[in-house]
Simulated assay, not measured.
Amino acid sequence: MSTQRVLITGPFGEAGEALRNHLVGEDRYEFTFLDRNEHPEYETHVADVSDYEAIRPAFDGQDAVVHLAAQSDAGADFGDVVEPNIVGTYNVLKAAQDAGVEKLVFASSQRVMGLYEEDHAPELYEEEYPLLLDHESLPKPDGYYGASKLFGENILRSHARRDASPEQMFSLRISSVRTERYDHPYGDAERGVDRGDEHELGDDDEVWDQSQTGSWERGSEQYERMVKRLKATWTSQRDFAHLVDCCLQNETVTYDTFYAVSDNASRWFDTEHAKEVLGYEPKDDGCRWDGPPEVEGASSES
């Protein structure tokens, strides 16, 4: 099997860390990174995705692109998402097309469906709640960030239908991928315990209501709410990397949309479509955990 040359944009966020931990170093891939900053330990093309001429050379000779770069603040204003998420996604698509790249994997977001959570939470986090969204469910973005990701999905779909270039395109509606330290269904709750009163909300913090900001203690109402939510939305690093691997190895999809979420019993996003089309085999289920890994007595099924 020949080595596949893959460009990753925005490889140093949470989703990018998952790929660095689980795919980089695999013999079947040769990775190049595109980022706004230099990273001497990796082969990195330094450019901003909003600048087409600056990013274009990075696409030459690539077999596939995984486009992760974005403004990831779910509460961002429209002006904050235009350049990185709308112009940037178009530039990546155009550069891939102009360079003859065969595959494009686009990092969309569960925020494309965000209003469902606003309408149904917190009961939605229970295992028996009767809601399961699939790739054909009506999108309902909950803000400009989610709307910008829906734009990305639609422009990929349009190019697939009109130009068939790149030949294969995949939109992954990513749920909650976390850094290695918090890569478990208690991660968000434990992050609140760890960060203390001096914490300022960062771009990668998911906030569905203001009660989720700040810090809290184990066992508090906020802690337990965060645990319930992440048990439903958790996408483990290894499951996310596996799903991207499935896309890169697939030879049949022209354009399709998939939910990037682990096989959590309380999830409200469908995984059957990814299993049937891509051969996705998630290994993790947040509902199997009964405590964070650093707490004595906590356990999970592997």
Results as ranks from 00 to 15, higher is better:
14 E>I: 10
278 L>R: 03
132 L>G: 04
152 G>P: 00
85 N>C: 12
228 K>P: 02
118 E>G: 07
113 M>L: 15
160 A>K: 01
259 Y>M: 11
102 E>I: 04
63 D>F: 01
55 I>P: 00
54 A>Q: 08
191 R>L: 12
55 I>E: 00
48 D>V: 01
296 E>Y: 06
273 H>C: 08
201 L>H: 06
137 S>Y: 08
83 E>V: 10
285 D>F: 03
192 G>L: 05
172 L>K: 00
256 D>C: 08
127 E>F: 06
261 V>W: 00
97 Q>K: 15
105 V>M: 04
5 R>H: 15
295 V>S: 09
242 H>P: 03
189 A>G: 03
208 W>H: 13
29 Y>N: 08
19 L>P: 00
105 V>K: 01
142 D>Y: 02
274 A>S: 11
166 P>D: 02
204 D>F: 11
222 Q>N: 15
189 A>L: 05
174 I>D: 01
277 V>R: 14
164 A>P: 00
242 H>C: 06
231 K>S: 13
257 T>A: 13
279 G>Q: 10
152 G>V: 00
86 I>Y: 07
185 P>S: 09
298 A>S: 15
187 G>L: 07
225 R>W: 13
251 E>H: 12
188 D>A: 12
125 Y>T: 01
79 G>A: 12
120 H>R: 11
126 E>H: 12
115 L>F: 03
175 S>D: 05
215 S>H: 14
75 G>F: 07
294 E>A: 10
224 E>N: 15
229 R>Y: 09
139 P>D: 06
247 C>G: 07
222 Q>M: 15
236 S>W: 01
153 E>M: 08
103 K>P: 01
67 H>I: 06
25 G>P: 04
161 R>V: 05
221 E>H: 12
21 N>V: 05
277 V>T: 15
42 Y>A: 11
57 P>I: 08
82 V>Q: 14
215 S>Y: 12
210 Q>A: 11
103 K>T: 04
186 Y>R: 11
237 Q>D: 07
275 K>G: 04
53 E>N: 11
68 L>K: 06
27 D>H: 13
161 R>F: 05
189 A>N: 03
165 S>Q: 13
223 Y>E: 05
71 Q>R: 15
29 Y>G: 04
119 D>F: 09
65 V>D: 01
257 T>M: 09
137 S>V: 06
61 G>L: 03
295 V>H: 08
2 S>M: 12
206 E>N: 09
33 F>A: 02
180 E>F: 04
196 G>Y: 10
90 Y>Q: 13
177 V>G: 02
